[in-house]
Design a protein around this nucleic acid. Structure first.
Lengths: 204, 204
DNA sequence: GTCATTCTAAAATGCACATTCAAAAACAGA
DNA sequence: TCTGTTTTTGAATGTGCATTTTAGAATGAC
């Protein structure tokens, strides 16, 4: 018994999300959000309360759909440590030059820690940490984790590496070097190897 | 043959820098900068051209004085890898709760890559990378680097870790866990050790 | 002391922004 | 078809911002 909304919520959230990822919360105006969502300012306020409300909804959407989707696609439980590596490598392959940016990393820096919305930052990091820890612990069980590796420590390391990579990618650092780094780090996690260096390294 | 400036340039830059570190470029208004520097808006414009000009000068000051000072204090060439570790540990000990933030990391995220000022981000990262690489290469020479470690790869890893830690610190993550991570990473770099796990780990 | 020059102070300008308002339009139920 | 409710729209509002301007104060050179 009332006029129904004429827009598609997921696509509105997706548009807003993209704008926020690219330009940050402060860098996006209501005007920009009109273009990004297709909604007029009035409708935005009617539907989401205010700019912060839309940001909040977009962030929730990001954690659920984008982050969750990436995990499901690249690093499902069955994919083990190798799936985690794929997830990391994908960070260096954002669609052509179009650096979307990670809403978690970017908001961790931009937002004030005692804002309401900051909880999404913490949630996102918790999700990542738990996925890392879960896969590493499972790998430890089935023997595919290098012996002697502490899963909690390794998960912490992966979380830091993840955030750091996103900063460096956004800064335009050489992505090939970063890919080599990821390859090396996961090689260290996955395979059993002692530290005895190759002969030429000893003699050099 | 003219009126001299009545302010102390380093302290003006230091004040502005602190404001920008805490709240970001967009988060600081000219009004805020008046308080942070002690200068009136007119003087700021007279001396630095505009807000971006002051930011530029403050960023240069950051790279030279703050970043350079930290390297000299914690990780001079003589301190080797151990000095690098001290530098990293210091990231988790910013003055009481007062998270100043790193202007390089924060600006890498907030600024647009094709702005003039972004060069300071690149310069800062280059400085860090070169310091890391230099200390690691020296350690390789004198045998204090774990055999088989590639200095370039390790320096890349440290750069990513450095940026990632700053993101996580700003996000309010448990700093003790992060310190354990740093300790473990540097342990891996410094000491010779094979990967043979302790007995209890094999049997578990 | 006077002059030229540069700095400071304070108000003024104009713009972009987030937000609100009021009117019109679109639907659901009767 | 009529009614009530909600969405949409486009204009209006007011605030905060970066920046400019203007007038006055301070200094060095002579």
């Amino acid at each position: 018994m009332s006029r129904p909304r004429s827009y598609d919520e997921p696509s509105v959230l997706s548009g807003a999300m993209q704008a926020f990822r690219r330009d940050g919360y402060r860098g996006v105006s209501i005007r920009d959000l009109e273009d990004a969502t297709g909604l007029k300012a009035g409708s935005i306020y009617n539907s989401f309360g205010d700019k912060a409300g839309l940001f909040d909804a977009a962030f929730e959407h990001y954690n659920k759909v984008v982050l969750g989707g990436r995990v499901d696609r690249f690093a499902p439980a069955a994919a083990g440590i190798s799936g985690l590596r794929d997830l990391f490598i994908s960070l260096m392959h954002e669609p052509n030059g179009e650096s979307h940016g990670c809403l978690i990393t970017n908001s961790a820096i931009e937002l004030d820690r005692d804002e309401q919305t900051y909880r999404h930052v913490c949630t996102g990091m918790d999700i990542l940490f738990e996925v890392f820890l879960n896969r590493l612990a499972a790998a430890q069980q089935d023997g595919s984790l290098r012996a002697g590796t502490d899963p909690v420590l390794a998960a912490t390391k992966l979380l830091a590496l993840y955030q750091g990579l996103l900063v460096l990618v956004r800064a335009g650092r050489d992505t090939q070097a970063l890919e080599r780094l990821v390859a090396a780090e996961f090689h260290e996690l996955e395979t059993y190897h002692d530290a005895r260096p190759a002969q030429q390294d000893i003699q050099a």
